[in-house]
Write a protein that binds this DNA or RNA. Structure first.
Lengths: 265, 265
DNA sequence: CGTGCTTTTGAAAATCATCAAGTATAGTGG
DNA sequence: CCACTATACTTGATGATTTTCAAAAGCACG
């Protein structure tokens, strides 16, 4: 049931290349892991597999740690693996030739990556903070899926939900103002934390955590760094939020933010 | 194998309410149809069902005709049906309370609608031109899916492809200029026509067909009607396209348009 | 306690939106 | 068949949000 030590890896950080271009280097993990004790199982597609079958799942999986700024999926590369985030936050993005970047999503614990039908990835993925991911061979998983139709059903559910989220994001990118985009982003983050986080209580006094940079937020919301910064400053001046530090935001007026987010202003 | 006459309908056009708000009215269709002869089967998820099982599929389906401007899915409504477009073009969209609209996609022949896991639709759908759709009961289809895992696999494929398209659209909405958006749109339309249309040959001299209004294009590309019109005028002045009439565009310089679309200016 | 990076803030510029006519196009009824 | 109306589209002038360019202020790390 345990993943063999030699099949677990850690991504190492090379030094001379800019972070985003650095190749992924792998090293053995010191501690072995199991699917049974996986912290992501509850929220991931793996919960479609029953306990008794977990060893089969584990045998196809490899655990990897990716350091902040390191990429582990590159758009256009041959898609040989599926990934499942077990901790940390991953940014998914597409680039234009001149460097313009659109982050299409932030994948947290339990998120499944690499669903493309195509033989190559249609997006890139990079760790925002230290990330643990579980890697599956595409071909092995395909066989596994034939034996576990429940998992295939789960994948369809996941894909459907992502499609809904993508459509919501299109509405944001195509039709919302900078203020509305930031409000939407903060409310979505807050909702994410209360639903998937360790805390099951409302946690109204808890700050919203922003592990990504302003640049990442800008590229996710279709804005510039400066506009993100200015807009946060303005929301703060209006007492809708407080920004104690770069990575935390207190939602002082969730209702006000919510109506801003939905365009009622 | 034939759909019973009484389960086929035509949408009728009421007169006093603005098109978008008019309720859908149904009338019996005069001619019966079959899944076996369905023009959309080749390009739809239904091709996962073998010929011998087609009658089971047909028994769960209802054929509907929707007139231009009529909606048949309303965001927030209880999701009781799945739909499959068999001819015509459907626009899918989300609205903000003040009327701002984002069209998330145009669904043509073979497109499957209503994949949401939720009990209610997350988007609205409206006919662009006269549309024929095949309607399935959600509950019936769920049972059908258990018997035909191949169809479930197809649905996952479809959902994955839509996800890829959605991410591409996010890149467009978040990071491309108006010119790049129009170029991307035209090239995507052209590709769609050559891949799914009746003509299998390149058809370079064929015009790109735009059954939707400038307003629809604007709401799809996150622009205004005026910007769409001006940008098309400019692309025409630059000899990249010709616009013989409102609904057709000739791609005079496909390569130039392609590099514009991908951000290589 | 510098050094380098991220973030914030300011001023100027630009793209796109808004407001406002004016021009086609299609459908209707005389 | 043609005027008439409604709708869609185009074009022009103005304006605003956001971007770009620039620089200062925070913060983290050695």
């Amino acid at each position: 049931m345990a993943i063999t030590d030699t099949s677990s890896f850690v991504a190492e950080r090379p030094s001379s290349v800019p972070a985003r271009r650095r190749p992924l280097v792998l090293e053995p993990l010191h501690a072995a892991q199991t699917c049974a004790t996986c912290s992501a199982r509850a929220t991931s597609v793996c919960n479609a597999i029953e306990d008794k079958d977990l060893d089969r799942l584990a045998s196809t999986a490899v655990s990897i740690i990716v350091q902040p700024g390191h990429g582990f999926i590159e758009e256009g590369d041959t898609a040989e693996h599926f990934f499942n985030v077990t901790s940390g936050t991953v940014k998914l993005f597409k680039l234009l030739p001149d460097g313009r970047r659109q982050i299409t999503g932030f994948a947290g614990i339990g998120h499944f990556l690499g669903l493309a039908v195509s033989t190559s990835y249609s997006f890139s993925a990079e760790a925002v903070d230290p990330v643990r991911i579980c890697r599956f061979s595409r071909s092995k998983l395909r066989v596994l899926l034939d034996d576990f139709p429940a998992m295939e059903k789960r994948l369809l559910e996941v894909a459907s939900n992502e499609l809904v989220a993508a459509q919501e994001q299109m509405l944001l990118l195509g039709r919302k103002t900078a203020r509305e985009r930031l409000a939407s982003f903060l409310m979505a983050r807050a909702g994410m934390q209360t639903h998937c986080g360790a805390e099951t209580k409302p946690a109204l006094r808890e700050p919203v955590s922003l592990p990504m940079t302003r640049g990442d937020i800008a590229d996710y919301l279709g804005l510039t760094i400066e506009t993100v910064s200015r807009t946060l400053t303005r929301l703060k001046a209006e007492r809708l939020i407080d920004v104690p530090n770069t990575t935390d935001v207190m939602l002082l007026d969730p209702r006000g933010l919510q109506s801003l987010a939905t365009g009622l202003d």
